[in-house]
Design a protein around this nucleic acid. Structure first.
Length: 721
DNA sequence: ACCCCTCGAGTTCT
DNA sequence: CTCGAGGGGT
């Protein structure tokens, strides 16, 4: 780096503008040399210096920043983050099997769901489960146009330029039969030989070695400077796909074979298994081959091979019902448990946590592990001072497996549950029949208030960039943020009630402006996310979505809850008031009560209204399906012939219908199978349209017009079958 | 009065 | 990831 370059402060505007132009051209030229021709002229350090120079001048003269500024390009600093990418189809996670029985159970579940005979084998496509990170790559007319990380499954980050550095990810698909649009999913990883070489090089340079391959790959993909990604020699195995402009095939294995023909790498040992025994054999084969592979794996993934079956099975929560990961046993180590501490959750739950002598297990150093509740401690007789066996469950969450009793110190004592909350001193109570002990302090307890804030800004909730757990904790400690609504006043009160954010330690104008911008962006929020963020007990993502779908807008929801709360305060009418909620399939008396009590609590009501004033809360977007039954409310009853009830429900929902558990005036159709009982009677009384299973299927698929919905029009349920 | 499935809550580390 | 518990069906 030449010493005669003047510092940015010493530049005239004119000179700065000239130099920015020169830098933009030069950096672009070096980018092209590096990526397109793989023939860099500069060392990494020299290249970095150019970029830093560019940024320094831009920081000094922000108005001179060019439209083609290198700092604006993807993968370029100082953008602290990547652009968000919404996945067309969510990227799901997998359920687990830990032994042969679990896998057999999986096969059984699939057979039951599809109404197959027990002797009818399910063909499973099996492949090693690579310990890397998921990514998705979009191709238009065979050209790589976009790549993203998994993120929370709904939204990931745009890492296109970084993914372009992966050798076995084709820039252009081979062959002629390439779909117009194709999204390929797979695992990004680093080869063990490359990992070892990388660490050797780092140590030779006096740098600290990377701890494990997975995190190295993860860090590598999220490098802002693409050149650094390239140095990690990341690789890619394709294992699935997202959206495609045409059907890709009829079986998992066939589609993967096509992907291979287009130029993607597939994991070795992958193959179709005919039934459970072959699947178990493949698992053993891959486990035996494990130590000879050039990458880390943590199990074998099995997917139902037939894609039409995959479609029928659908997903439950965040995991598809048609796939499972059969994990290898986790590595176990011994360590000393120094003491049992208590953590306070958002609902006041007091959870015992084991404070461990730090120990390296499953790729990371572990120093704490949850002990779940006092019954678990009692059952395994876990005591402070014990030597314990620790593993990372599913290679992720640390877990105390058991105590080595022989090594117990003589004077050890059993764990005594706390009588008071360690944070606020409020009484700690364990309700009859419950496993958890809770702090009774409510929002008086600083720990609970803080946990609720943390939940509010969490990834599944408001997900405000730059306002993570750490930051919100600092704001709370300072008094700058006492409750969720305060977040949206941060900019307005900045410099008034509190000193400007920009003057805080570690902050500047840019970081403050970035935070305010991120908060602004989140003023628009969907109703389901909003409800989930409130942190009502028993109401998570799924239940929040049910509520959002039923009530449509915040105002309608708020009004309905108020009505229920008012009614609940009058004697005898409580149950009736809760009926509105329990009518929703998936919400029972306990959850309904929790919701009504939450809204009725004045402090919560105030928070809710303060947020409503500050936010733009959007109705949940209706399911995209424009099928004839979209938006209709359907109830199933009796024994169905052509499908299980579970499947019927899943398919109706996929078509945009709402499935309710009980018949009411709001019900559009009652689908009655054999031996339908009380529900059918009630439907007749209320004049709800009753359909046979066959008619329902015909209506749902658009092959028949829905019967007139006038009262009394009804088919006879006996027509079924 | 049971069973099975799904959901929610809490937790770890980089 | 695991555990407990709610919801819904038999």
């Amino acid at each position: 780096m030449s010493t005669d370059t003047p510092p940015p402060e010493a530049l005239t505007r004119e000179a700065a503008a000239r130099e920015l132009e020169r830098l933009a051209q030069e950096i672009e030229r070096h980018d092209e040399l590096y990526y397109t021709h793989s023939a860099p002229e500069l060392s990494d350090a020299e290249y970095d210096a150019l970029r830093r120079r560019n940024e320094a001048i831009e920081a000094r003269f922000p108005d001179l920043k060019r439209a083609d500024s290198p700092s604006e390009r993807v993968g370029a600093p100082p953008a602290s983050s990547f652009a968000k990418v919404r996945h067309g189809r969510p990227m799901l996670s997998l359920g687990n099997a830990l032994n042969d029985d679990d896998l057999a159970e999986f096969e059984g579940r699939v057979q039951r769901f599809l109404n197959l005979g027990e002797d009818e084998p399910v063909e499973l496509y099996g492949e090693p489960k690579i310990d890397g990170l998921s990514a998705t790559v979009h191709y238009h007319n065979g050209k790589l146009v976009l790549g993203a990380t998994r993120g929370d499954g709904e939204t990931g980050e745009d890492v296109t330029e970084n993914l372009r550095t992966l050798r076995d990810l084709p820039q252009t698909l081979r062959g002629a039969d390439v779909p117009e649009r194709l999204e390929v999913r797979g695992e990004v990883y680093i080869g063990l030989a490359d990992f070892a070489a990388l660490n050797q090089a780092r140590e030779a340079e006096g740098e600290e070695a990377f701890v494990n391959p997975r995190n190295t790959a993860s860090g590598g993909l999220r490098q802002i400077d693409t050149a650094l990604t390239a140095k990690r020699r990341l690789r890619f195995f394709a294992h699935g796909w997202g959206e495609a402009s045409e059907p890709l095939g009829e079986r998992q294995g066939d589609v993967l074979a096509r992907l291979a023909a287009w130029g993607f790498a597939l994991a070795p040992h992958a193959r179709r298994c005919r039934g459970l025994d072959e699947a178990l054999a493949l698992h053993r084969e891959i486990e035996a081959a494990r130590s000879g592979l050039d990458f880390e794996i943590d199990g074998v993934v099995f997917k139902v091979d037939r894609l039409d079956w995959q479609g029928r099975l659908g997903a439950a929560g965040r995991a598809p019902r048609w796939a499972i990961a059969y994990k290898f046993p986790a590595e176990q180590v011994e360590t000393v448990l120094h003491r049992i501490s208590i953590s306070v959750g958002r609902t006041g739950a007091l959870t015992p946590v084991a404070e461990l002598e730090p120990v390296y297990v499953g790729g990371v150093t572990v120093s704490r592990a949850t002990l779940h509740n006092e019954d678990v401690i009692k059952e395994r007789d876990i005591r402070a001072g014990d030597t314990v066996v620790v593993q990372r469950a599913g290679d992720v969450i640390p877990q105390v497996v058991r105590v080595i009793e022989d090594r117990r110190p003589a004077e050890s004592e059993s764990f005594v549950p706390p009588a008071a909350c360690p944070e606020c001193g409020s009484h700690a109570v364990r309700e009859e029949g419950e496993a958890v002990r809770r702090c009774t302090g409510g929002l008086i307890c600083p720990a609970q208030a803080l946990e609720r804030l943390r939940h509010f800004v969490a990834r599944d909730a408001f997900d405000i960039e730059g306002l993570g757990a750490k930051q919100i904790e600092a704001f709370y400690a300072e008094g700058r943020v006492k409750g969720p609504a305060d977040i949206f006043d941060l900019e307005a009160i900045d410099g008034h009630a509190f000193p400007p954010l920009a003057e805080r330690e570690g902050w500047g104008e840019t970081s403050a402006a970035n935070l305010f911008r991120a908060i602004e962006a989140r003023r628009q929020v969907s109703l389901d996310r909003f409800i989930h963020a409130l942190g009502i007990r028993h109401v998570g993502q799924t239940t929040a979505r049910l509520l959002a779908r039923r009530y449509g807008t915040v105002d309608d929801w708020r009004v309905a809850m108020d009505a229920a709360a008012t009614a609940a305060s009058e004697p005898d009418s409580e149950t009736e008031a809760l009926d509105a909620l329990t009518d929703i399939d998936g919400i029972g008396p306990v959850v309904a009560k929790a919701i009504v009590e939450f809204v009725a609590e004045p402090r919560n009501g105030a928070i809710l209204d303060a947020l409503r004033e500050r936010l733009d809360i959007e109705p949940l977007e209706a399911p995209t399906a424009d099928s004839p039954v979209a938006g209709k409310t359907v109830v199933f009853t009796g024994k169905l012939q052509r499908m299980t009830r579970q499947e019927a429900k899943a398919r109706a929902e996929a078509l945009g219908a709402q499935v309710a558990g009980s018949v009411s005036r709001a019900t559009d159709y009652l689908v009655a199978g054999e031996d339908a009982g009380s529900k059918l009677k009630k439907a007749r009384t209320l004049g709800v349209t009753v359909l046979s299973e066959d008619t329902w299927l015909a209506v749902a698929s658009g092959d028949a017009l829905p019967p007139s919905e006038e009262a009394g029009s009804e088919e006879r349920a006996e027509d079924t079958g």
